[in-house]
Amino acid sequence: MLLGRAAVLVLLAGCPSNDDSDACDVDASTEMMLVYANQLGVTADFADGASLPLVAAPQGGHILLVAPAIRVAGSCSVQINAALRDPASGRVIGLEERPLMLVAHDGWARPPAAAGLSDLANVAVCPTSAVTTPIFDHPYQLELQILDADGHPVCERTAMVVPTCDDEYCRTDCGALP
């Protein structure tokens, strides 16, 4: 399931450069897009209001695979924080921080077109104790931050997304808790 490539160009304010030579050189003029991957590892950009596939994780549960694409020269690494929030309660349903290697492609640094699970944030959202309604087919707020070397968020992009299920296992795992 591929979404159309919708460029979400965002001017990011206040993003400092990182001293690490392999780290992405992100600053206030950096453009950023949001990227997801499906169960097959196929990546695509997405915009506010997008439907995102819930991916079955190897040990169980379902995750959203998301990452940034940033307008920088060359391949580079970032530490990111990705979270899914219930807009009704404000509670964070799933959150992960991890290092990512972004690959140069057409003037952007982004996850590879055919991505592995560790090429994107694995936001574990099912099962969850944070909501009592089904995860799938309901809108949630996705928040993605690029962190500095001290772990502080320096850039952030948010989008409303609708997690979706392709099979009964997903609908059961991501259904309402009893």
């Binding site: 392999d22 190897p58 690494s77 509670r91 964070v92 992960e96 991890r98 699970l117 009592t132």
Partner: peptide, 25 residues
């Protein structure tokens, strides 16, 4: 709670992974 997709690589020798896990109400 577990992080399933970790990588500790020669080219990135000091990675850090974090997660958060919500409790019931």
């Amino acid at each position: 709670a577990t992080q399933q997709s970790i990588r500790v690589c020669r080219s990135n020798p000091k990675p850090s992974y974090s997660g958060a896990c919500a409790m019931p109400a």
